[in-house]
Every structure is written in C-alpha cells, then in structure tokens.
Amino acid sequence: MIPAAFEYYRPKDMAGVLSILEEHGDDARVMAGGHSLIPMMKLRMADVPHLIDLQDVEGMSGIEIGVEAIRIGAMVTQHDIIDHEPLASAAPILREAALQIADPQVRYMGTVGGNVANGDPGNDMPGLMQCLDAAFTVVGPDGERDIPARDFYEAAYMTAREDEEVLTAVTIPMPKGGYAYEKQKRKIGDYATAAAAVQIVNDGGTCASASIAMTNLSDTPIYSEAAGAALVGTSVDDAAMNAAVAAMLGDIDPTEDNRGPIAFKKHVAGVILRRAIERAWSRA
C-alpha cells in the first residue's frame, strides 16, 4: 500500500492550480480531501505523477444560502455540511445524506467537490445533486462554466469536466417540499447496496413535483425523470409508488458484486425507493 513516487504541489491560488494542470495535462490531478484518490494511488490503480493539493486555495470553503439557491464551495467537507445549521434548515436532505457517508473520520476530510467530481458511482453526493438539480461550476484555462449535475456523469470515473478544469462549487436551487435520502449498506463506511434521493412537493394532497435519483445502481448516478413523473399529479398512493419503482427499475443497470447479484439489487432498489418516497411524502 505504497504509492509510486509523485510530485506534490500546494498552490496558493487557482491560477497556480491551472498552470500546473496546463503544464502536465492528464499526468496531473487535483486533490481535495484525498479519500478517494489516495487509496487509489496506494493501490497503484491511479498513476498520478503530479498531485495538486487544493487545501491552500482560498475561496472554496464557503456555504452561501441565498433566496433562490445555495452555493457550496468544493472544499466544504461532509462534516461541514452536517454541522451547518442554516444549511440543515434550507436543505435538510444534505445533512441526512452526509450522515450516511463513510464515518466521522472520513467526513472530516472528505469534501463535497471531491465526492461529486471523482465520478465514482458509489459516491452518495452525485445522485443527491442530480435529485436536487444542482449545477457544478468548473474553472479552466478558458474561464468558468456551469454543468448541470444531471449532464455531468458519463461513465464510471468519466465526467463532463475536462482534464484541465477544476470543480470549484456546487449550486443548488432552493429545495422545496419533503425529502429523504434512504441508503442500504452492509456496514458503516460502505458504499450503498442501493440508495435513493427523493425531493417531493405536496400541493393539497396531490404531488406537484417529484425528483428521484439513485446511487450505485449503474456506472453513473441515475436521475430517473420517469420515476418522478410517475408521482406527479397523484396522491402518492400504492399504485403511484409502484409506477415510480417500475420506472426507476427501467432506468438503472446494476452489476453483480460482493453486495449481491443483480436480482437482489433491483429488488432492494425498489424497496429503498418506496421507503424514500414514503418518508419524503410524510415530510412534504
């Protein structure tokens, strides 16, 4: 568990980061909390000759709660998310999800930016951000651009971010209605066997809008537009939930691993989504 030799950089500003990225291309990687990248390097599965630590780059650790949107800097840790009371009031699903990520020691270091940028299908934040219709701000040599979370993930570890770009912030439209992040895992610290993020609006007993995304059930997070649509206009009764589950099952594509075979994962995905909808609806 010893990585190959690498050059370590700790620039003070984004310009410094970008210049190293430009110089070394895909031989360079940025690191936020390091809780995904460092194990990969130690296993020698990731070859990173030039490692750029973002800890000293200022301006990426803030949480701003506006009227229309919430902006979370890329270097905000999972612990910061859990600890931030105004954020927990504005978007309680973030705390609920963050508390189910890894364990406290990892959450002190692991960041929102690293979690969403790495493209690991096991990570919880990508599905959550798709559910919330977040946008990721990336900055590169040609300036800044926003990429919708729902368009960001292409395959496992493959995203819409270019090699010379750095993800600096996540912007979330102010969530409305009830919420739930439901996750089944084998043990503390594990990735999900199946997880569901649900945000749902109740307008006088009828579902006005619903957003559903699933974690670790494909090689990317899965935003299931059809599952959400199946709930809209209903009273979120059994039939509607069955329709939502059926729609979701049509969108996911799980693979067998040590957590179990595909049939099991699909079954659990359905159960977990149903529970998430029920809990979110009860809060809506």
């Binding site: 089944q184 066997t193 957590r259 179990g260 099991f264 079954h267």
Partner: peptide, 10 residues
C-alpha cells in the same frame, strides 16, 4: 449477509 438472507426469503 443481506443478500443471502434475502435469497432465503426469496
């Protein structure tokens, strides 16, 4: 584990 218990039930 979860999936083997599920398998028994199944």
């Amino acid at each position: 584990d979860h999936w083997r218990i599920w398998k028994t039930a199944n």
